[in-house]
Amino acid sequence: MLKINDLNIFYGAIHAVRNVSLEIQQGDIVTLIGANGAGKSSVIRSIMGLVKINSGEIIYTPKNGKPVNISNMPVENRVKSGIALSPEGRRILPQLTVEENLKLGAYIRNDVSGILSDIDYVYTLFPRLKERRKQKGSTLSGGEQQMLALGRALMSRPDLLMLDEPSLGLAPILVDEVFEIIREINSQGKTILLVEQNAWAALKIAKRAYVLETGSINISGTGQELLNDPKIRAAYLGG
């Protein structure tokens, strides 16, 4: 569904992503783990079209479509072809209500009744949001904002859902809940690219995993393989 070949990203003189290649199969949860500053967000943001890439290819195969190199595609067209991102830090629009944030997530769609039923679907996933539907985004707790960011990313009905550190800053009990919901969304047919620092939780639900270290991918494998890899255990799983 998505294949990245030899991706390089520079910010001025900083070489943030170095020759990264990875592949995501339809229906899988794929995780990209790594320390702070490794370049995870840069990779995921380049797939969305939010950072310019310096070289490499991003080949995306939309549902029932042919593979296309989307590296130069405008962001809104990437959204239309089925890619969505729940960004690091959630980025809830603070002055819009919960419901308006969700409606904005459905901006590319015009099927009014479908949008309303998808809002209801998000409310069944996250009943807390329903209680707060008329509240401003800024009044939500961190956990609620994360749920809203996830729900908002679902509103464009993406085929590939990308999540940038959805567990960041959440209480442990909420972390479990968020990962449970990611698994549920995946079981309903969505392909997921999950970027995480919480390597243990991410590897447990991932079909395939890539480890990013200072911009390069040196280790990859199934989630289970990496969970059992002594080097990974030492570096990312606390022994």
């Binding site: 969305m48 980025r91 901006y107």
Partner: peptide, 15 residues
């Protein structure tokens, strides 16, 4: 209204 708070987030939602 969304753009006036956060252009980039609005863009990533397909606007």
């Amino acid at each position: 209204r969304a753009i006036s708070f956060d252009i980039e987030t609005t863009r990533m939602l397909g606007v």
